[in-house]
Computed example of a mutant assay.
Amino acid sequence: MPLGKGELTTTATSLHILELIVDHGWVTLRGLVEETGLAKSTVHKHLSTLRANDYIVKEGERYTLGLYFLTVGKRAVEFRESYQLVEQKVRELGSRTDAEVDFTVEENGRLILMFEAAGATNESTFGTGTEFFLHNTAAGKAILATYADSKRDEILDTQGLPATTNKTIQSREALHAELEQVRENGYALNDGECVEGYRTVSSVIKRPNGSALGAISAGGPAYRIDQSRLKNELADHVRSATAEVTESLVEAQSTL
């Protein structure tokens, strides 16, 4: 576990242990000692600190995440007032199109699903908090298309271009060409690149300063969403929705 510049060893170790619990769902003291190579007493101290601050709980010999994370996640959303406006728009669009609609944001080079709606006769395929790569999702490509080359390349250097289906973009040249198309169209497409048989179209919401807040996507399984509907009806809907939210954010700032 290499440390970055300015990182505290103790804090980094606690966070690493926490990440292992996230990855595994639950861990034991013995298992953590074996996986980290740290002394038993050291691991126990880190676990005790995390328990004392409600980040984890102990059930028998197992340690798992505490429900306090629900409170933390909720506060993270509440502090971003613009998200409330976006959530309302996502629900409206889901009801109007009866497609799967969601809002995702980029953080630390990954795409995080924040809100979703599925309409009256549909069910959501993913769930709030689901993480995705950027290069193989419509929302990710829509957001990448707004970034400077340096920021885009930094993300790709870190995350790479892992393939999740046989349609996933595997070269930077192909991705760059598609991002140019995204800029021209005002929306991005994904046809089975992230999940086989799943299609989406996405457009970016911009902050008043012009940077990307996140992206609204609409789509669903290929048997429900054909190419024509994706590129026409749903593309028009997401572009209209993101333009409306972008305009509302500008108006809200102008009244401050």
Score class of each variant (00 low, 15 high):
T128I: 14
K141R: 13
T125A: 11
A138L: 06
D153T: 11
M114W: 02
I143C: 11
T146S: 12
T146H: 06
F133I: 11
S124P: 14
F126T: 06
K151W: 06
L144A: 08
K141E: 10
S124T: 15
A145H: 10
F133T: 12
A145R: 06
A117S: 13
E123N: 09
L134F: 10
G129A: 05
T130S: 12
T130R: 14
L134Y: 10
M114S: 01
I143M: 15
L144F: 08
K141T: 05
A139G: 12
S124W: 03
T137H: 14
G127W: 14
A142L: 05
R152C: 09
L113D: 01
N122G: 12
F132I: 01
K141Y: 02
K151Y: 04
T125K: 08
A148V: 06
T130L: 05
E123Y: 06
M114C: 01
T121N: 11
D149P: 08
T146D: 09
D149Y: 00
T128V: 12
L134H: 08
T125G: 03
G119N: 11
G119Q: 05
M114E: 02
N122Q: 15
G140L: 02
R152S: 07
R152I: 07
T121Y: 11
A117D: 04
A118Y: 05
E123Q: 13
Y147M: 15
F126S: 05
L144N: 08
I155Q: 12
T130G: 04
I155S: 07
F132V: 05
L134G: 09
A139M: 10
K141I: 06
E154A: 15
E116R: 00
F115S: 00
E154S: 13
T125L: 13
D153N: 15
